[in-house]
Design a protein around this nucleic acid. Structure first.
Length: 774
DNA sequence: CACGCTCAGTTTTTT
DNA sequence: ACTGAGCGTG
């Protein structure tokens, strides 16, 4: 080993504690790291990758899997800091779903898919299930689409195909017991329809990866050889399908490094199997186990309180999480009269701490069990002019107007996509109603083909519609065909503009002067912006030909959780406890600690469910670094009704020595309540002002599409902002050029630059990597 | 076929 | 409270 390399290795290891170092240094076989909350889990993962790279393992031999894009992004940037961006970029780092969708697109033919397959999101899946239930003339009160889809999802996560499902006596017996004996049939049809639509749902991405590996040993062999080192974050959240993928890929080199905390397993509803981590040793008998027990995040009081809570669970890996930080303040429990008052109390407390303790807004988080609770905090914070940011809830890409446009995109890329077809065939209204759509659907099913095929050749499939309708259909077909042609020539952004214009969406939306209409128009504009930036950014990276399909692939696996949170130093964070996993804040409020809310009503009948809720509460408390405040309300609006509540049993699970004596809220806020007409009118107006102001509190921006947005707003853009016409610049990729024009559209300034080598290019100043020469 | 009205449900959490 | 599905009318 070269001396310099050795030096870097030593330096890397010197920044770790003994337990972390042991874990990083052990590279000869499978290893499991049990990482207590706040014990430096991400640190170990990133240093491990750096360590491997420094030892000379080529980056493209390393596979690092996470659950969220956010975690992947975080890891990427931290590895970048350690070993440089160039190497870090080559590591296969991403979520299970994104990595394996990439692999599936490469290998699509082997499993009978086209590589441009669509990825169905949860609501697409839900719709399809509902459609099938209707087709089968089943009662959707008995066969609730949501629960049926859940069953299907669980089956897929356990790698049970429709055929296996049908033959599995135990499952069938269970279905009979819950009076839904035909789920197997729905599952079968669902899977057929997905395939006919050249589409996969989220679960398919994992199931078909397994099918691919099962049926094509040569392909498996290829990836097995490539991935010499596999790292998995949040291993306690893996399901069987994920576990098996990892196991198979690790078969040759036997070098898996999984990190997790059984006490933070909170995704069983999604098929996560806590046994994967509890029984890691039986899957990999020669595995080494490392425990990280020192918590660097929180005060002793917080750690101890959390420990006392989690002790009430049975069946966990024993560990002794401890903190060497100061003892800190006790956890405060506050009761409020109502959910409304709970909001006011928290808002007041934040405002007070900001002034008295000089805490900036970004160091506060309000965590809750359900998204529905966010509304009340929005109100109370807004009233006190406290800036906040909500994560989760309806994501940008789930908004109707956005999904409609995405529907066009999907159909252009994959005309087999039935869900998209149905969504847009009559949007904007073009006189093709349900009757016609059903006829097309029936014809497609009879002839065992897709709806697009029927549309393409209505006569051949005996489509029984009148000539007027026929004309409308052929117009629609021509429209989509036109876009498909354009897709050959235009980039994603240009094509999107074309779609919005030619379909009449632009005309329709921009004319609508109602507040809702204007907000829709803004959202569409936002989408276009995002796409423009997406294209510009890729061009910066050296890809000139950015097609719609590239954008679509990115977007379908993106979620709200992926927005860049930590950049917002001046906003209070509002999110569900689930979303907060992996994050930390100085001051945390956990709200709604009431029976049937936290723990949620559904969970309390079963031991398993209750323990998961308790782990969830554990996750919530351990997000806090300095203070943690628990609140509950004695009454709460639920489903439009005011109901009285009981305080959560979890509060008494915490050892009282770590709690400050419970305080009833002193009278705070009854008078402030704005009920009735005037109240709601005023609220409405406030909303409007907020939405229209220059700095909206709730702002999607384009961050969700741009992994490097934040970094580029540093020193570069300050110079770039001052760029003028006539300046000469040196661009990282295009070389020398003269600025011929500056154009600013809102916050996005762009420059037209004539480059010596490549001619005129458009640069988005936000992203462009260049120096001003003169 | 589109639009507007009424009525019912609402299983948390998310890739 | 709110949304979305279903139904009747123009």
């Amino acid at each position: 080993m070269e001396p310099s390399e050795k030096n870097t290795l030593t330096k890397l290891l010197a920044q770790l504690n003994a337990a972390q170092r042991d874990a990083v240094e052990f590279c000869d076989g499978p290893s499991l790291v049990i990482a207590g909350a706040g014990s430096g889990k991400t640190r170990v993962l990133t240093y491990k990758i750096a360590y491997l790279l420094e030892q000379g393992l080529p980056p493209y031999y390393i596979l690092a899997l996470t659950f969220t894009n956010k975690a992947a992004k975080e890891m990427k940037s931290r590895v970048s800091d350690l070993v440089g961006e160039k190497k870090a970029r080559q590591v296969w780092m991403g979520t299970f779903h994104s990595i394996f969708s990439r692999i599936l697109r490469n290998e699509a033919e082997s499993i009978g898919f086209d590589s441009n397959f669509t990825i169905f999101d949860a609501s697409d899946s839900h719709n399809l299930v509902r459609l099938i239930i209707k087709d089968m003339k089943l009662d959707d009160k008995v066969y609730r689409p949501g629960s049926v889809h859940h069953c299907i999802s669980m089956a897929k996560n356990s790698l049970i195909t429709p055929a296996m499902y049908e033959q599995n006596a135990e499952i069938r017996e269970y279905d009979r017991k819950i009076k839904q004996p035909l789920i197997f049939e729905i599952y079968r049809r669902y899977q057929e329809r997905l395939r006919a639509a050249n589409s996969m749902d989220f679960d398919d991405l994992l199931m078909f990866t397994n099918i691919l590996f099962r049926d094509h040993p040569d392909i498996l062999e290829n990836y097995r050889n490539r991935f010499q080192y596999i790292l998995v974050d949040e291993y306690q959240d893996t399901n069987f399908a994920q576990h098996l993928i990892v196991k198979q890929l690790a078969e040759v080199h036997h070098r898996v490094f999984v990190v997790g905390d059984d006490a933070q397993s909170i995704y069983s509803f999604r098929g996560a199997n806590i046994d994967n981590i509890l029984k890691f040793k039986s899957s990999y008998p020669e595995a080494q186990v490392f425990k990280l027990e020192q918590n660097y995040r929180s005060t002793q009081n917080i750690v101890n309180a959390a420990n006392s809570l989690i002790k009430k669970n049975v069946g966990q890996i024993s560990k002794n999480v401890f903190s060497k930080q100061e003892e800190g303040e006790k956890i405060e429990v506050i009761s409020a009269f109502s959910d409304f008052e709970e909001g006011v109390i928290i808002a007041n407390k934040i405002a007070r701490m900001r002034v008295e303790d000089h805490v900036s807004y970004g160091n506060f988080a309000i965590l809750y069990r359900t998204n529905a609770q966010s509304r009340i905090f929005e109100e109370s914070l807004r009233k006190k002019n406290i800036p906040y940011r909500i994560y989760g809830g309806l994501s940008f890409y789930q908004r109707k107007e956005i999904k409609d446009i995405i529907g066009y995109f999907r159909l252009i890329i994959n005309p087999q996509d039935e869900e998209a077809f149905r969504r847009i065939i009559n949007y904007p209204a073009r006189g093709i109603g349900d009757v016609t759509v059903n006829k097309i659907s029936d014809a497609a099913q009879i002839h065992n083909t897709g709806m697009w095929e029927v549309l393409s050749d209505p006569l051949r499939y005996d489509l029984n519609v009148n000539s007027g309708t026929l004309k409308k259909l052929s117009d629609f077909r021509a429209l989509i065909r036109h876009f498909i042609d354009q897709n050959e020539k235009l980039n994603a952004f240009e094509l999107a503009q074309e779609v919005i214009k030619k379909t009449g969406i632009a005309g329709e939306t921009y004319q609508d002067m109602t507040p809702e209409g204007m907000s829709r128009a803004e959202n569409i504009q936002e989408l276009l912006n995002a796409m423009n930036i997406f294209v510009a950014q890729r061009q910066e990276e050296g890809n000139d030909d950015i097609r719609l399909s590239d954008f679509l692939q990115e977007v379908s696996l993106l979620t709200d959780q992926d927005t860049d949170g930590n950049s917002d130093l001046e906003r209070v964070t509002l999110m569900t406890v689930h979303s907060a996993k992996g994050l930390e804040f100085d001051h945390v409020f956990v709200a709604g600690l009431e029976e049937d809310l936290f723990p949620v009503a559904m969970a309390k009948n079963e031991m398993r469910g209750l323990e998961e809720e308790r782990r969830l509460f554990y996750v919530a408390i351990t997000r806090a670094k300095k203070t943690c405040t628990l609140t509950y309300a004695k009454s709460r609006f639920r489903n439009g009704r005011l109901s009285s509540t009981q305080k959560s049993r979890f509060l008494s699970d915490i050892d009282h020595t770590f709690l400050s004596s419970e305080s009833d809220a002193i009278f705070v806020a009854h008078a402030e309540r704005e009920d009735g007409f005037w109240g709601s009118l005023r609220r409405k107006r406030e909303e409007d002002t907020v939405n229209r102001s220059q700095t909206p509190l709730y702002n999607f921006q384009n961050e969700k599409l741009s992994p490097v947005t934040q970094t580029s707003s540093g020193s570069l853009s300050k110079e770039a902002d001052e760029l003028c016409k006539g300046d000469i610049i040196e661009h990282e990729r295009f070389g020398r050029g003269v600025v011929s024009e500056i154009e600013s559209a809102g916050s996005d300034k762009r420059a037209f630059v004539d480059f010596d080598s490549v001619g005129r290019k458009q640069l988005l100043l936000k992203f462009a990597k260049f120096k001003i020469v003169k």
